[in-house]
Design a protein around this nucleic acid. Sequence first.
DNA 1: ATTTGTGTTAAGGTTAGGTTAAACAGGCGA
DNA 2: TCGCCTGTTTAACCTAACCTTAACACAAAT
Lengths: 235, 235
Amino acid sequence: METVEKKILLVEDDPNFGIVLKDYLSMNDFDVTLAKNGMEGFEKFKKDNFDVCILDVMMPYKDGFTLAKEIREKNEHVPIVFLTAKTMKEDVLKGYKAGADDYLNKPFDSEVLLMKLKAILQRKASNSLADSKQFEFKVGNFHLNSKLRFLKYKDEETIKLSPKENELLRLLALHENDLMPRELALTKIWRDDNYFTSRSMDVYIAKLRKYLKRDDSVEILNIHGEGFRLVVKDD
Amino acid sequence: METVEKKILLVEDDPNFGIVLKDYLSMNDFDVTLAKNGMEGFEKFKKDNFDVCILDVMMPYKDGFTLAKEIREKNEHVPIVFLTAKTMKEDVLKGYKAGADDYLNKPFDSEVLLMKLKAILQRKASNSLADSKQFEFKVGNFHLNSKLRFLKYKDEETIKLSPKENELLRLLALHENDLMPRELALTKIWRDDNYFTSRSMDVYIAKLRKYLKRDDSVEILNIHGEGFRLVVKDD
DNA sequence: ATTTGTGTTAAGGTTAGGTTAAACAGGCGA
DNA sequence: TCGCCTGTTTAACCTAACCTTAACACAAAT
């Protein structure tokens, strides 16, 4: 199993710098969405759930602070990091007032940014108590959202999952490339381990296999008498 | 009622600087405990509950990083701010690794420190606070004014909403693109969760769907047995 | 060879949800 | 007081979603 990459919203008006930073962060296993200005940034923010926002302060039309305030209105908790060329004290103060989590002066060391992001995300993760519940997975070219109960293939179709389908696939994903014991699913999902629930589970395995057929690199294998194995082949 | 002053543990080996900073923070309504070295700092940390720790990095015997690690072992969440004279990248990285919440280079502006402290404490506090009252939403091409109970489509018609319609749409908007659990609406709006209130809610969902029909990019989806999801598609 | 386990499809039953319309309730003006 | 308006609930009917069970075929283990 692989956890879904953390989503970053990067709002930066300088296209060159924006692309470079985006690529750098992507290389470091972040899922980066780049917006070219404050307007676009806010639109993108509303349409998705981000783990961190990185905002350039100086942008035409809508500066980083204004954007930050709008973002804060929609989401009180999402961490915000400002980038600025200025090292003016007023700006720094304004930034913290706007709800910044951190502050970086350009030019900054990309490794430092990485560290800050990691620190912020880690802090956030440990802040939420019920974080043991994991509900987003990347399985081959599929994306499983176990909270909203859907499976998406390559930004194409969205497949709605029934509660049982969803739970079963989630359990398989949690044990990706490893044995997911029959008994585990039966006790966790069906709360009973008998002939009929076991057959019911097989029916659901068949359903999941049908969904997963559209990606050759993903497969549910049976381990006779033991359970199932969700296999994801490398490309 | 007045909130109790926030407690700060300040660990700083330079006595002059330490006293000055302590007084400055005290004047700004913090309850500051000053320790002259890492050893003393850790002892004091164990004996009390602090809201923030401010640690000098360069101290004899036990440096700030080592102290931070010890503190983190005892308390995973307490925010830590480092002070350092050095501006070395290695130090900054080391700081974030040690679980820093923020980082300040000496000499720093005391007002900036104050801002950072406020930001850190506020963030921590608002993490536990309930959702703020929000009354205006943009949902696709609609504009919802929840205070005046109307819904407007593209500067065209103004649709008046009944109290229940309004509250329900507001709840959905607050959870845009995310699950709005059935139970949440029933307890928040209907104050009772039974068969009939649940059916009533379905009737209201139908009404809202009728309103939202004029914009193809907006849709209320059902998640069987869980609740509803207000989805706004990209253009 | 026989038993036990799995793959798969389809039928059946149950519950949740979509929708419309009628019933009900309270406020308000005639 | 009566009727009307508005908002809300209840009822009714229908479809969709979900899950189990049955049935039959095949595979694996013994």
